[in-house]
Design a protein around this nucleic acid. Structure first.
Lengths: 226, 226
DNA sequence: GAAAATGTGTTGTTTTTACAACAAAACGAG
DNA sequence: CTCGTTTTGTTGTAAAAACAACACATTTTC
């Protein structure tokens, strides 16, 4: 396979040469699969066999409760893994579904091989462990950020909390977000139509502007009125 | 110091003998401090110098936004650490405050010494790294659970989501929670008085019962009416 | 390129929550 | 034990969000 080009730019395998990477692929019993847009990479409730990594493309982690409410937990981009934390805490079934948002290549890795140190020749396993640790820490921060947005009382404040972070990340008050409107509503746990109304109101007030998934945040306005 | 008794039962240092533990204490430049109830162990906005571990007692992690809204992020019990993820991602200031909820002994550890492998004699450092990884993974699951509660639309569903998890954890429909009513409201991001009203309503309907921080969840009733 | 599916914006109505203000209860320190 | 502080419960009102139903736009698929 020539997936090494993709793997070499991931956080997990980036610092590892192609030869060692190959050895590790073997050790982790990796297999690759390509998913079409909308296909489920993992299904909520199914037993966990592997840790998955997005090699190319992207996916959304979502949770559907008994009442049918959809909650978007996060988005996974290239290089990101899912299923690691569950493996560490010993969960046996997926708590969420992972759904491809475009044509997406996924690498499946044996969950046990990944987290236990091995006696094999893949001598870079320690580096991978370190990298995974880093990624779990980053995910933690990501979840804390989501909590910060969701803890806001009003839809407007939730949106502003999210937009402010995205602007900071982009280092610009003009930025693109990885969600469409429906997904954003499910990410922030607000009603989509109510959110749509609120966004329109914010635009009328000159606070923000947007087109598709691109947004502009008028920070001057924000600071003036606080 | 005779803190070893306390440390020996923590996830981080539990598998390590007293001698190695002592060596590591030195390596991590640990220092101990006792806080009274209500005192701040870490303050939001202050620069991060150390990773802290609750040795004895407990604390609450909370965040106050510009409008003065208090959000309880999580509760820390004995053996739990705070500041690790921030160190991994390179944050320089505390995003939250950590406040002792009772008389609490805290161990401060040099953040760099903790996460970088060292050349010293503390040969159990690798075990500590592994244990920390486990704890960060567990914290992620904890945060995901909180997100699940908070993503529910109504106060009642938020409460039920939380209570159901606590009952599952306790393996009983009778359980104690680590929050008082005010803290619980701030944890779930709902108005305290509205929550109080909703709890009373749920009690009237026979769905739950409670006294102080102890709750009983009537699951039969729950299943019957869904 | 047409049809189907998905995504988005708008409106009015209903339900829920936040807010404010207060009283009662529990707790804690001296 | 007592006073001050914190926690909890209650109520009415105002504000906000959820919901439902729809039209229109956009995207996907064959």
């Amino acid at each position: 396979m020539d997936y090494y080009k993709d793997l070499s730019v991931t956080k997990t395998f980036g610092q590892i040469n192609e030869f060692d990477c190959q050895a590790m692929m073997f050790c982790f019993k990796t297999r690759f699969k390509v998913f079409k847009k909308g296909e489920s990479i993992l299904k909520q409730g199914e037993s966990i066999e592997d840790v998955v990594m997005i090699v190319r493309g992207s996916a959304i982690v979502e949770n559907v409760d008994q009442m049918g409410n959809i909650s978007v937990v996060m988005r996974l981009g290239a290089g990101e893994v899912y299923g690691l934390e569950a493996t560490y805490v010993g969960d046996e079934v997926n708590k969420d579904s992972v759904i491809a948002t475009e044509k997406t290549t996924v690498m499946f890795m044996n969950k046990y091989r990944l987290i236990y140190p091995c006696q094999n020749k893949c001598k870079r396993h320690d580096i991978v462990i370190r990298n995974l640790m880093q990624m779990v820490a980053e995910r933690n921060v990501e979840l804390m950020n989501k909590l910060t947005h969701m803890s806001k009382k009003s839809t407007r404040d939730k949106l502003l909390s999210y937009f402010t972070l995205m602007a900071k990340r982009a280092n610009s008050n003009y930025f693109e977000i990885p969600f469409n409107k429906t997904e954003l509503a499910n990410y922030l746990s607000v009603d989509r139509s109510a959110m749509s109304t609120e966004l329109a109101k914010m635009r009328d007030e000159g606070l923000i502007d947007f087109d598709k998934n691109e947004y502009r945040l008028n920070l001057d306005f924000l600071n003036k009125n606080k």
